[in-house]
Design a protein around this nucleic acid. Structure first.
Lengths: 361, 361
DNA sequence: GCATTCGACTTGAACGATCCAAAAACCGAC
DNA sequence: GTCGGTTTTTGGATCGTTCAAGTCGAATGC
């Protein structure tokens, strides 16, 4: 330790009066070495503060125990925050499983695929986590074709599914390749269902939806939860929907349109950004027509903004998602499918009730 | 490429009818190899799509070209967002410089130091980026003592400085070790100075400050900028300060106290969280005493929340910070101090003017 | 003309682990 | 005491690169 150079397997072997291989066995398959010898080796390891050089190991075994993750290009939006929380959780879960997370960037999908090749060829990265899949994603196809272990945070929104109005929709993932690739996702439908049900339970009957334009898998999924819940309650007939791209300003405009019609007592929003806009619109509306009871609002993602403005929102359990993603990757990397129970996992979000949906009516 | 196993130096050497070492030279010091030979080797490299195995290289050279960064434990707050933006920028800048960023987690400072040892001993990480230094930080001392390259995002807030009320304060960093360690930081004083000056220019004369409790280096720095600017304008005498821990609710309370005294037309806030609280308090206040002109507010960090609620805020140029951090690390890793002009860099933030400070008076 | 220097390239030996095959030690059984 | 058979241990080869030393021929110096 003090002499500058770190001890190696041979150092430990000498010290314990055994061979290199025996030391290696103690570390990698302790059960095949006699207890007395094992003890002696372990003591030597402790005495010398030996740590295996993972670089040398990697060179020989061709396993790096490193996962790659692309940093999505500076997501201005509020919702990019979800990815950051996911990254936190992923780092922790990976470390617990003896894996590391390495970051990289890429301009677009093709550049990202080139970077996959690069990272595999040069650093021997074991697998990848994709956190922002979209319809017809070329990356998942490439990874599957080249037998690279990977998991996506997000279902494969196949072209044949996105854009259709299948409100009922089945829950078993569509199969892109044989049996589909492993993924973990959050059940957006269940999230908006919980929000809508919460509002119904609070007595609301005219519950509008502020969503994104049709065609985005995530948006359609969240829409479906709201719609199905109202349908179950027999209220689907006069349900109001406003669609707009994501953003606070867009949320203001969409909410204003709904409020102008004066036929909603609650708003289920597809994102916190839009919900934030809705809150601002409501303040405007209340200012111009004082005396009206306020309208309940729910958001989606439970970002810090939601906590800050006391907005009821659907929280994504990114910790669970990260844990399952790591599990799925380990199963592939170690070639043991049996340790990953489900190749495709849908995680239930939960509703965090705050002031904006507790409003007096 | 199709035959499964990737080409190695020897493969390329055979193909180009030279030795391994010559190929290696073409890659690492092209100038010492004759142009004709170089061309031949380069063609072979291209033909075979050869990429050097960085793992083997690392084993030999003991250089990994990987930077370590600890993911700070799930920062609930709005301001944790700054670190995430920094991480984005850092990944990009590092990649541009041929470096990679690897993440890890640790419970506390001691665990982090253990992880430094671990990462150095096992994976041979070249250097570290610390993004959340505090007074009397044991980590910087350990890293310096063990000759590990590192850079901090944040000045060393030495104990002898923090907690004092040196409003004038010198700008050259205090020296912890010999000559101090390399750091990059954002000039919080200049940030609040810009905000305060902006408000002065708009005609405000009674400008209060909502800050954190004394003793935090960052908070005191930002306070100093506001105070100095008012002093320069001869307005320091009746300047109002309210101090509170960070948080939206705390901001509401602090702002309410200021508004109750009715002697401020503008609020400079130490963070976006507190500014957000101030905006909420103002709405309350305006509702109870309608007719009063609104109070201007500025925040700090220019988080997505600020953009969302149209809050004037001081933007931290994390891109610049990341670029300089990478430069400082490269200089240390490659042992060439000359390529890093300044070991300690203070980056100027800039004010983003939005609606909350443009309010009619 | 011979020794010296220099440039361009080659060769063998590391780096520190694991894989592999074979030797050694151990064991009870004949 | 020797013999199979098993368990442990051993030494050499290997992963793909760079380092250090060495070869070879041409150019330089006197």
């Amino acid at each position: 330790m003090v002499d500058g150079s770190r001890p190696t397997l041979s150092t430990v072997a000498q010290h314990a009066r055994v061979s290199r291989q025996t030391v290696s066995n103690v570390l990698n398959s302790p059960e095949i070495v006699r207890p007395a010898t094992r003890e002696r080796v372990l003591r030597a390891i402790a005495d010398l503060d030996y740590r295996p050089n993972v670089v040398a190991r990697q060179l020989r075994t061709r396993r790096s125990s490193v996962l790659g993750l692309r940093m999505p290009p500076a997501s201005d939006g509020i919702s990019g925050q979800v990815l950051d929380r996911f990254l936190h959780a992923l780092t922790g879960e990976a470390q617990r499983a003896g894996l590391r997370v390495m970051l990289f960037t890429a301009e677009d999908d093709d550049a990202e695929i080139r970077e996959y090749q690069n990272l595999r060829a040069t650093t021997g990265i074991d697998g990848f986590v994709l956190a922002d899949t979209h319809a017809g994603d070329p990356r998942t196809r490439w990874l599957a074709e080249h037998d690279v272990p990977f998991v996506t945070f997000g279902r494969p929104w196949d072209d044949d599914r996105a854009g259709t109005d299948d409100l009922a929709g089945t829950d078993d993932g569509k199969r892109g390749e044989v049996d589909g690739h492993p993924w973990v996702d959050i059940d957006g439908r269940a999230g908006t269902r919980a929000a809508t049900q919460h509002l119904l339970d609070a007595g609301h009957r005219r519950i509008a939806f502020l969503g994104w334009p049709e065609g985005s898998g995530v948006g359609d999924d969240r829409f479906a939860g709201w719609h199905a819940t109202l349908a179950d309650a027999g209220l689907a007939g006069d349900a109001v929907v406003q669609r707009t791209p994501d953003g606070v300003a867009q949320g203001v405009a969409a909410a204003t349109r709904v409020l102008a019609r004066d036929d909603a007592t609650a708003l289920v929003c597809v994102s916190d950004s839009i919900a934030l806009g809705a809150l601002a619109a409501m303040r405007e509306h209340a200012a111009s027509r004082s005396g009206r009871p306020s309208v309940a609002v729910t958001g989606f993602d439970d970002t810090p903004v939601a906590r800050a403005v006391d907005l009821t929102s659907v929280a994504q359990p990114v910790g669970d998602v990260a844990a399952r993603a790591v599990g799925l990757l380990r199963a592939q990397i170690e070639g043991r499918p049996e340790i990953a129970p489900d190749r495709q996992v849908l995680v239930e979000p939960h509703l965090v009730v705050r002031a904006t949906s507790r409003a007096v009516r």
